[in-house]
Amino acid sequence: MLSDWEGSSTARVVPPARPRKLAKVPFVELADGRLQGVVSSGSDAGRVYVSSVAAGDYAFACSTNNNRPCGGARGSFCNHIGALITEAVLQYGGVRVARYLRVETAAVEPAAHDIATAMRATGPAKGDSKAAAQVFSRFLRHLAYLELAATTAPLPEMQWFPPTRAVA
């Protein structure tokens, strides 16, 4: 016998993202075994930083979209990575972010600083920034969704994707 959840066509698997302000960190995702995203530069509106932290060993990387290394991310997490963690917790909830990164904290509902502190305490190494191009192209793909046309032809498969009031 299947449980109700296993036997449900509309079982909720991923809680919906929570709304947040996007100006500082326009893109965050838990993907490819990393917390990764794009952080706006504080000084130059045309520049963004591509930042990431790997799950498990917390290897971090931060560089501009033109592949210049971030000056702040030499020995440990820079402010961009800090902002990335904060916004990820807003978007996905602390529990999901901590579980994905495999961070153990004492908190039941870990806050961004709990997660960041726990990761910093392990003295993570600087990772390679090879992933930056890939993360940036995922951000562009994310933005491209706004350019796609709406349609009034029905999408019957969307019956499988109901909204949920449960929060992340």
């Binding site: 919906p16 947040r20 893109f27 978007q91 796609l148 709406a150 349609t151 999408l155 969307m158």
Partner: peptide, 20 residues
């Protein structure tokens, strides 16, 4: 039924969906 649908970035949620 009458339907309307649109692709969206996953950061557009809640009332933002109606706007699209």
């Amino acid at each position: 039924r009458a339907s309307v649908s649109a692709p969206k970035p996953d950061t557009v949620v809640g009332a933002g969906v109606w706007q699209l």
